[in-house]
C-alpha cells in the first residue's frame, strides 16, 4: 500500500491555496459530535477542514488582495481597452467624449446662459470641472452595478472581491488619462491662457486623494448595489444631482442663499476636490489647509466605511 509520504506534494497554486485556506477558522467543530467521530474513524484527521465560502480574516484579506495585483491590473487594462471596442473610432472616444462634453456645457452655460460673467476664466472652470468630475461619477455609477456585472467572474473564481473595486477605479484612471491630457492642453491653449506654474505640482497629490475617494465610493456603492440591485436604475439621477451640487459646470454658490444648503454643498467632497483643482490650475495657488484636511478626512473616512461594509458581506457576493 502507498504510504502517506508517497502522496504527491501540493504544487504551485494549490500550495498557495492551502496556505490561504488554513487562515480561515477551523471548521470541523461545526459538525455534530457524532458525525465528527464517525468521520474521524473513517478518514482520520479533520483539522484541515474549513467552512466553504468563508471570508478570510482581515489581514489575510489584504495579503490576498495584494497577491491579486496582477489580476487587478489586467482587469483594469482589459476593460479600459475594450470600453469603446464596438465604436468605429475606437479609443479616439477617450478624447472625443470629454471634448464634446466640455464644448456642450460651455455653449449652454457659458454662451447661452452667460453664467461665466464676472469670472476670470470660465472655459477653464468648466473644463476642469467636467474632466475631473467624470472619474468619480463613473466610480459611483459603475460601482453600483459592480457585483452584478462581475457575477460570472465572482462565481467562477475565488479571489477577494474588493479587487474588482480597485480594478474599477484603476480602469477609470486609465481611461481618463487621455482626457486629462486634453484638459491640460485646452486650459493652456484657450484664452486667457493658464500657464504651468509651481502650484501645478499639487495636481498629482490631489489626484491621488481623489482616487482614494473614488475607491471608497466604488466599495460603498458596490456594497449598496448588492444589497439593493434597483440602485443602478437611480444612479444616472444621482450622478446628475452630484454634478450640480459639486459646481462642475457653474459656480453653484451664486445660486444658493440659504447658509445651511450652502454648507452642505461645500462639504461635499467632490466640491472640495474640484475647488482644489481650480485653485491649483487656474489661480496658480496652493489650496487652503482646510480644504486639504477636509479632503483627506473624506477620502480616509469613505475608504474605511466603504471597505468595512464591502468586506463584511464578502461571502454574499457569489450568491444569486
Amino acid at each position: 500500500m502507498a504510504s502517506p509520504s508517497q502522496r504527491p506534494e501540493p504544487r504551485g497554486l494549490r500550495k498557495k491555496w492551502r496556505r490561504a485556506w488554513s487562515t480561515r477558522d477551523a471548521g470541523a467543530d461545526l459538525l455534530s459530535a457524532s458525525l465528527r467521530s464517525e468521520l474521524q474513524e473513517q478518514y482520520g484527521d479533520l483539522s484541515h477542514l474549513r467552512r466553504v465560502g468563508s471570508r478570510p480574516p482581515l489581514r489575510e484579506y489584504f495579503t490576498e488582495l495584494f497577491d491579486r495585483r496582477h489580476f487587478i491590473w489586467a482587469g483594469a487594462r482589459g476593460e479600459a481597452v475594450t470600453r469603446y471596442a464596438n465604436e468605429r473610432l475606437g479609443v479616439a472616444w477617450y478624447v472625443l467624449r470629454p471634448v464634446l462634453d466640455a464644448a456642450f456645457y460651455w455653449v449652454i452655460f457659458g454662451v447661452v446662459l452667460q453664467m461665466g460673467l464676472g469670472m476670470d476664466n470660465f472655459v477653464a472652470f468648466i473644463i476642469i470641472g467636467v474632466f475631473m468630475f467624470q472619474p468619480t461619477s463613473r466610480a459611483i455609477t459603475s460601482g453600483s452595478s459592480l457585483i452584478r456585472n462581475s457575477k460570472s467572474m465572482i462565481r467562477a473564481f475565488a479571489f477577494p472581491r474588493a479587487s474588482l473595486a480597485v480594478s474599477l477605479v484603476l480602469r477609470d484612471l486609465l481611461s481618463s488619462i487621455p482626457a486629462m491630457g486634453v484638459m491640460f492642453i485646452a486650459i493652456v491653449a484657450i484664452p486667457p491662457h493658464e500657464m504651468p506654474s509651481a502650484a501645478w505640482s499639487f495636481f498629482p497629490i490631489i489626484l491621488l486623494l481623489q482616487l482614494m475617494l473614488n475607491l471608497g465610493f466604488a466599495l460603498l456603492f458596490g456594497w449598496l448595489g448588492s444589497v439593493m440591485p434597483d440602485l443602478s436604475q437611480a444612479m444616472s439621477f444621482a450622478s446628475r444631482l452630484l454634478m450640480y451640487a459639486s459646481a462642475v459646470i457653474f459656480p453653484i454658490e451664486r445660486f444658493i442663499d440659504h447658509p445651511v444648503a450652502l454648507g452642505i454643498v461645500q462639504a461635499n467632497p467632490l466640491y472640495v476636490v474640484l475647488e482644489m483643482y481650480r485653485t491649483v490650475l487656474i489661480d496658480g495657488a496652493a489650496p487652503a489647509a482646510g480644504d486639504w484636511l477636509e479632503l483627506i478626512l473624506w477620502a480616509a473616512g469613505l475608504l474605511l466605511v466603504g471597505f468595512t461594509l464591502f468586506w463584511r458581506d464578502e461571502e454574499r457576493y457569489g450568491r444569486e
Binding site: 494549490r14 485556506w21 471548521g27 477542514l49 474549513r50 467552512r51 466553504v52 473564481f157 450568491r319
Partner: peptide, 18 residues
C-alpha cells in the same frame, strides 16, 4: 461550493471548491 447558503446544515472542506 458555498455559492448558495443552505437553509440549515454545515459544509466544510479542505479547500474552496471550484
Amino acid at each position: 461550493a458555498g455559492l448558495q447558503p443552505a437553509t440549515s446544515g454545515t459544509v466544510v472542506a479542505s479547500a474552496q471548491p471550484q
